[in-house]
Computed example of a mutant assay.
Amino acid sequence: MLSEQSTPVVRATLPVVGAALADITQRFYAKLFDDRPELLRDLFNRGNQANGEQRQALAGSIAAFASMLVEHPGARPDAMLARIAHKHASLGVTSDQYKLVHRHLFAAIADVLGDAVTPDVAEAWDEVYWLMANALIAVETRLYQEAGTAEGEIWRPMRITERHDETPDAVSFVLRRADGRPAGTFRPGQYVSVRAELPDGARQVRQYSLSGAPDGDRWRITVKHVKGGDGPEGEVSSWLHGHARAGDVLTVSAPFGDLVLPGGEGPLLLASAGIGTTPMLSLLHHLAAEGSTRRVTVVHADRTPADHAHRDELHRLVRALPNATLHLWYEEPGAHAPEAARGRADVTATELPDGLTAYLCGPLPFMRAVRGDLLGRGVPARDIHYEVFGPDLWLGRD
């Protein structure tokens, strides 16, 4: 909770700071990478830095956290903090790095806002920063403990034992530990990071959902080839598609991510689009292995049946659950998917039981649309969960 002294200062300066956050975060990253160029080379996603999405996400998270401190002093954006903390843990972020970020962020604030940063203003926003940082450090410490690893020591060599081309743009890899030990358990819906050494020597990191059954012996990830177009080509996905073969060894993190099932027997909605199907497959594998009788509504949207990765597997898993239904939408269904509707997913026309918990994964426009439709149908925001890969430009706080 923000102190009584700082609350009115943050409330009064939030509009000014918020309006300048884009400039502040741009200056911050420039200072950070001038000081520590290896962070851009080996930790931060260079594509997201180039297109500005990482700056937008950082600015949004700071503004969202500060706004909640002054508008709802008895609450905390726990969902947002959990997503950030899981992502940080999957990158091996350590608590000492928050001091480095603090130094360059507040230098950037001073550069952009100048004399407006009085001692009182600096002290109040310093409190905001450390409230957020310490909350994240606490969650990340717990995540490392649960993973059975020291802070930041998340990496392990894993050998590709199988490679399967699922669609023209998606390939799956079955992974086992290179030392022969069991891969380890994970919670269905979680992801791992893959660190790839690229031709220029950079070691870029990307996250991929564990798309198979929660098998302690082997893991499976499915990687979509990001080909560019409206944005930069995916460096790691391009490298994996072009170079990774059975027998190769990848550097892979422990599993993280909070898109996991609640206990109980309540109804579920699993809604995905494109490669967002991957965490849903893991959840369905888990439910099928348990012999679950929960009511499960599965919604998936894709371009065509041929572009739908693990399409047959999804059908099999839904058939294995006695109270599951599958609703498919394809932009171009063709003759091979007579059961599918044409166009974009529309949950407004889908029968949904009361009291459901919803899980969303896919492109941000898809998730925003589905979440809005669910809210319109009376599903509480707290019961709608999502996974986003790349900078979180949505920042749902419920």
Rank of each mutant, 00 (worst) to 15 (best):
1 M>S: 14
2 L>R: 09
4 E>P: 00
6 S>C: 08
7 T>K: 11
8 P>H: 14
8 P>R: 15
12 A>L: 07
14 L>E: 03
18 G>P: 02
22 A>V: 13
24 I>Q: 08
24 I>G: 06
26 Q>N: 11
28 F>V: 04
28 F>I: 12
29 Y>N: 10
45 N>H: 06
46 R>H: 01
49 Q>F: 02
51 N>Y: 08
53 E>N: 14
55 R>N: 01
60 G>L: 12
61 S>K: 09
61 S>F: 14
64 A>F: 12
66 A>T: 05
68 M>N: 11
69 L>H: 06
79 A>C: 04
82 A>M: 13
83 R>F: 04
86 H>D: 09
87 K>T: 13
87 K>I: 09
90 S>G: 15
94 T>L: 01
110 A>K: 14
111 D>E: 14
113 L>A: 06
115 D>H: 11
117 V>H: 04
120 D>P: 02
133 A>N: 00
143 L>P: 02
148 G>M: 10
153 E>I: 00
153 E>C: 00
155 W>Q: 02
166 E>G: 06
168 P>A: 07
168 P>E: 13
170 A>D: 15
176 R>D: 01
176 R>W: 00
177 R>H: 04
184 G>C: 03
184 G>W: 12
185 T>E: 12
191 Y>I: 03
195 R>K: 14
202 A>P: 00
202 A>Q: 11
203 R>W: 08
209 S>Q: 01
210 L>Y: 06
215 D>V: 14
215 D>G: 08
220 R>L: 01
220 R>W: 02
223 V>N: 03
223 V>K: 05
225 H>D: 13
227 K>T: 14
230 D>T: 14
232 P>F: 08
233 E>F: 02
235 E>A: 14
239 W>T: 00
246 A>M: 07
247 G>W: 04
249 V>R: 00
252 V>D: 07
255 P>R: 05
262 P>L: 01
263 G>V: 09
270 L>A: 05
275 I>N: 06
277 T>W: 10
280 M>A: 08
281 L>I: 04
282 S>E: 06
286 H>L: 09
297 T>D: 09
301 A>H: 08
302 D>P: 00
308 H>Y: 08
309 A>F: 05
314 L>G: 10
315 H>C: 04
322 P>R: 14
326 L>G: 10
332 E>L: 10
334 G>P: 11
339 E>R: 07
343 G>V: 10
346 D>I: 11
360 L>G: 02
362 G>P: 07
363 P>L: 06
363 P>C: 00
366 F>M: 13
367 M>G: 04
370 V>C: 01
372 G>R: 08
374 L>E: 05
377 R>F: 05
381 A>N: 07
383 D>E: 13
392 D>M: 06
397 R>D: 05
